[in-house]
């Protein structure tokens, strides 16, 4: 098959960006979308042009590195699929495809299609953990966790941290990412002691970097792991509750 790619090129954070168009023929439908870029880059190198920079690593849809906005949709047209798992058989012969980086103020551009998603790490660092220093744990079976609770925590924990939710959101909000991280731990019995502080700190950190959620729901539609927007509701509930809980603790301290 034959495709026409229109790709965002930008040499560095301060450089002027522009779209470039490339025609590719003899594209195999078994090729993944990133393999299409491998082929494009080989051609560019042969012509003496610098290849398109893009983040990728595992190519199995789990590391969360890949991050292409394809025809205005993060990770492209197939639901529940990261760019690396998207295959050319999902496109029509002769398709014209536009590819851009994630665009969000909190994700500064590094080069071409590569952005810096460190802001996600800052959110996790502010509370996305259970304090359990190595060596201090009781036997794993001492903590009984109902299967439904473990399953629900796992649904949230499946987040790969790719940033598609932010890229899809008209406000560049990171509520789906943050909610997935908060609720994975807040649902579990082990996560209870730090529950209220966790949600407060993570939401506050999120707001330093990202826009506000206005319930568009684009994030859920874009998420390659199909993480439910319900987690945002649960996070909001915990956040509100935390304000009261913290106040009560504060008053007890006098």
């Amino acid at each position: 098959m034959k495709v026409t790619l229109t790709v965002w090129r930008q040499a560095g954070p301060a450089a002027q960006g522009r779209f470039e168009t490339y025609e590719l023929d003899e594209v195999s439908e078994d090729m993944s979308f990133l393999e299409l870029f491998d082929v494009l880059n080989e051609r560019l190198i042969a012509k003496g042009e610098e290849p398109v920079a893009f983040d990728h690593d595992c190519r199995e849809g789990i590391c969360g590195s890949c991050s292409m906005m394809i025809d205005g949709r993060p990770h492209g047209p197939e639901l529940g699929t990261a760019t690396c798992q998207l295959h050319m058989r999902k496109f029509a012969d002769g398709a014209k495809i536009t590819v851009e980086p994630w665009r969000a103020g909190a994700f500064p551009l590094v080069r071409d299609l590569v952005v810096d998603r460190s802001a996600f790490d800052r959110i996790v660092e502010s509370g996305g953990y259970i304090t359990a220093p190595t060596g201090s744990a009781p036997d794993g079976n001492l903590i009984l966790i109902p299967k439904a609770v473990a399953d629900s925590a796992m649904d949230a924990a499946a987040c790969i941290g790719c940033g598609a939710c932010v890229a899809a959101c008209p406000n560049s909000a990171a509520n789906l990412f943050t909610a997935a991280k908060v609720m994975h731990l807040n649902l579990l019995p082990q996560g209870q002691p730090e529950r209220w502080e966790r949600v407060t700190n993570m939401v506050d950190t999120m707001e330093q970097f990202f826009g506000s959620c206005t319930n568009h729901g684009e994030c859920e539609a874009a998420c390659p792991k199909e993480i439910s927007i319900d987690f945002i509701a649960l996070m909001n509930r915990d956040y509100i509750k935390a304000q009261f809980k913290q106040r009560r603790l504060a008053s007890q301290r006098g």
């Binding site: 744990a137 794993g140 079976n141 299967k147």
Partner: peptide, 18 residues
Amino acid sequence: DQCVAQGVPFAREYGGLL
């Protein structure tokens, strides 16, 4: 044990055991 304490959501039986 360490991973459970950290909140790794291992698969559980219906009774809540690993």
